[in-house]
Design a protein around this nucleic acid. Structure first.
Lengths: 259, 259
DNA sequence: TAGTGGTCTAGACCACTTC
DNA sequence: AAGTGGTCTAGACCACTAA
């Protein structure tokens, strides 16, 4: 009753927000046009447009240029816990190649899809520190964009010491390694079975590049994930960093209280 | 070279962003005024102002109404791992009251400070589910806003089954329990020593209320934390939820890869 | 009091979508 | 071709800050 009711633009936004909350404007539903709003509230089109901007930055509304403004569909939320790395996900699997498989096959669309690029790059500072190599020395970079139901959900880029993965399917650029845990499988085959993971998370607003890549609606934050994977000996075998569209994930961790 | 160089407003923002990145505009430094920019770039004041809005939503710049626009100071980042719950933080400590202590004493300011309110409230759905009580039944709510160096950094609200904490210092409204782990200490004293924690994290944009409470600059996301604390028996003794200013924290978790 | 950011109007043009 | 969001101008007023 005190905030949000000040300026005309905020007032209009508040009214629309209420309509959305009440379900009167359902997800996917079309909002009144800027010109409609301007007339109805007796304000300039600029001001009515401002209301839409406010709702966009709230993440409540998406606009399609030339078409209209729509109530944002809420995406299904995926819960991310340590189980996603579980051994049975990758230990039993054969290393599959997705070679000539049509990328829009039904299964691929449902299951999720990932594009992938592998290349040898000089290690930057965080990568070098994590992998214990010198800055600038060559490491394998495996960059992927993961898509689910047609929407890109996150990027993930892994780095490996070149000696660890040289000659494995991982670095063979032609077929590529399919899906989940392919990297872990390859490491295990080389006698470097992953055993422990440290994940660092932070949230921030996306860069312009990330907004394009992940097709983020304005006002949606991202979560940056940095992951260090070690063997039972404590040797680091993978360093990875990724960017997730915040609204599509919940992270969950369970741990014993330390002494 | 392709993004960000389109409209005049974006062009101005890009120039300023470059000045910030290069250090020519240092953190805390004052940006040119809207009227300056308008004249220099030969655009309307509205457009020059738009550039500032873009930088604000990027989180790069803060504005002080009537004073100017300033490059945002980057806050020291606190790393949050399971160690912050370590037993030695609360097991040995006496339960201190902060009674008549001046809230702006030097130590309090440095160490951080928290306001606190305890009350008996009806359990809402998530609280009831977590604590295993019926919706609407009375539970103790302990709400606090944590401040560090004069800036509010996060809120945290804990819920306890009323039988578990009845008659303890926790629910005594007059003195209040000081600082870290006071709640855990009290539970341990009642034979309900916390043993295991599950934390769920998600990132989103703040509500208007949160923006005020945490004094968030526009464009800064928050991380919502939900925490379930259990004894060694698996009994839930605390459910808590909090909202953190995203830019001031990194979360870190280490775990063994499950089977 | 002078300078600042914030917001508004009224009208214009553009780029895009839909039919 | 009609309707849409996006952006811009030029000028106005307000609320706030600082000297």
């Amino acid at each position: 009753m005190h905030i949000d009711s000040d300026s005309p633009a905020r007032r209009i936004a508040a009214d629309l927000r209420a309509d959305i909350a009440s379900g009167q404007l359902p997800p996917g539903g079309k909002l009144p046009s800027v010109r409609d709003l301007a007339e109805r509230y007796e304000v300039s089109r600029t001001t009515a447009g401002k209301a839409l901007i406010l709702l966009k930055t709230d993440g409540l509304v998406t606009t399609r240029h030339g078409s209209g403004a729509y109530v944002r569909e809420s995406h299904p939320i995926r819960r991310l816990g340590p189980e996603r790395y579980a051994r049975h996900h990758w230990e039993q699997t054969t290393v599959r190649a997705f070679a000539t498989e049509a990328p829009e096959s039904e299964a691929a669309q449902q299951q999720g899809h990932q594009t992938q690029e592998v290349s040898l790059v000089p290690a930057d500072e965080p990568v070098a520190t994590a992998l214990g190599v010198e800055i600038g020395s060559p490491v394998y970079e495996r960059a992927r964009v993961v898509t689910r139901e047609g929407n890109p959900t996150h990027t993930m880029t892994s780095y490996y010491r070149s000696a660890d993965v040289e000659g494995t399917p991982l670095v063979d650029p032609s077929p590529g390694i399919a899906g989940q845990g392919g990297g872990f499988r390859v490491l295990a085959d080389k006698g470097l079975a992953p055993h422990e993971i440290t994940e660092d998370l932070c949230a921030r607003m996306p860069t312009a590049e990330e907004t394009l890549l992940l097709d983020l609606p304005p006002g949606e934050p991202v979560v940056e994930l940095r992951r260090v994977t070690r063997t039972a000996d404590g040797q680091v075998v993978e360093y990875a960093r990724g960017v997730h569209a915040a609204s599509r994930f919940v992270w969950s961790y369970t741990f014993a209280i330390p002494d």
